[in-house]
Deep mutational scan, measured.
Amino acid sequence: MEQATVKWFNAEKGFGFIERENGDDVFVHFSAIQGDGFKSLDEGQAVTFDVEEGQRGPQAANVQKA
């Protein structure tokens, strides 16, 4: 698992990007966020996640709020 920071997340559209420590951004979809209830992330929030290869490149999976 990697630890990184949420760059931005649009709760209405259900997706955003996580900024990795190496500077690369990773796409995150609300369905990858672990937990119950409304799944959203806040800008600047610390998260841990795995990286999977998606249809359009790397994307976050198993996202957990740190």
Score class of each variant (00 low, 15 high):
9 F>D: 00
8 W>I: 03
34 Q>R: 10
59 Q>H: 09
20 R>H: 05
16 G>S: 02
15 F>V: 04
45 Q>E: 13
9 F>H: 00
37 G>E: 07
39 K>H: 06
60 A>C: 03
38 F>H: 08
61 A>S: 10
52 E>N: 08
28 V>G: 01
35 G>L: 08
29 H>S: 04
48 T>P: 01
66 A>N: 11
63 V>M: 02
52 E>Y: 13
55 Q>C: 15
51 V>Q: 05
38 F>T: 07
27 F>A: 00
47 V>G: 00
24 D>P: 15
60 A>Q: 01
28 V>I: 08
41 L>F: 05
27 F>Y: 06
30 F>G: 00
60 A>S: 04
1 M>T: 13
10 N>H: 07
18 I>R: 01
2 E>G: 10
34 Q>Y: 09
43 E>D: 10
18 I>L: 15
54 G>Y: 06
32 A>K: 08
16 G>M: 04
64 Q>I: 12
22 N>A: 09
3 Q>R: 15
35 G>H: 08
65 K>N: 08
26 V>K: 02
2 E>C: 14
4 A>M: 04
16 G>T: 04
28 V>Q: 02
15 F>Q: 00
30 F>A: 05
54 G>H: 08
15 F>E: 02
42 D>C: 15
26 V>I: 13
2 E>H: 14
5 T>K: 14
27 F>G: 00
1 M>C: 13
7 K>A: 03
11 A>H: 12
27 F>C: 07
23 G>W: 04
37 G>P: 06
62 N>T: 06
55 Q>V: 13
32 A>W: 04
15 F>H: 04
66 A>I: 15
44 G>R: 06
42 D>Y: 15
24 D>A: 14
63 V>Y: 00
34 Q>C: 12
31 S>Q: 05
35 G>R: 01
7 K>C: 08
39 K>P: 06
9 F>Y: 09
56 R>G: 09
7 K>E: 01
6 V>E: 00
3 Q>T: 14
60 A>W: 02
14 G>L: 03
19 E>S: 15
45 Q>S: 08
38 F>Y: 11
42 D>W: 15
13 K>T: 06
11 A>L: 09
43 E>L: 12
60 A>L: 02
14 G>K: 01
53 E>A: 10
34 Q>M: 13
5 T>I: 13
38 F>V: 08
64 Q>G: 07
17 F>P: 01
26 V>M: 08
63 V>E: 01
52 E>P: 01
3 Q>H: 13
58 P>C: 09
39 K>I: 06
64 Q>H: 12
55 Q>P: 15
22 N>G: 10
37 G>F: 07
20 R>N: 05
10 N>T: 04
24 D>H: 11
12 E>S: 13
44 G>N: 07
15 F>W: 15
20 R>Q: 07
57 G>S: 06
54 G>C: 09
16 G>E: 00
24 D>C: 12
1 M>K: 15
35 G>T: 09
11 A>V: 12
24 D>W: 09
64 Q>S: 10
47 V>W: 03
17 F>Q: 00
14 G>Y: 02
42 D>R: 15
28 V>F: 14
58 P>I: 10
47 V>Q: 01
43 E>W: 13
24 D>M: 12
41 L>K: 02
58 P>W: 11
29 H>I: 05
36 D>I: 12
4 A>Q: 04
16 G>Y: 04
61 A>E: 05
57 G>C: 06
15 F>T: 02
5 T>Q: 09
56 R>L: 10
44 G>M: 04
60 A>F: 03
54 G>S: 10
33 I>E: 03
47 V>T: 03
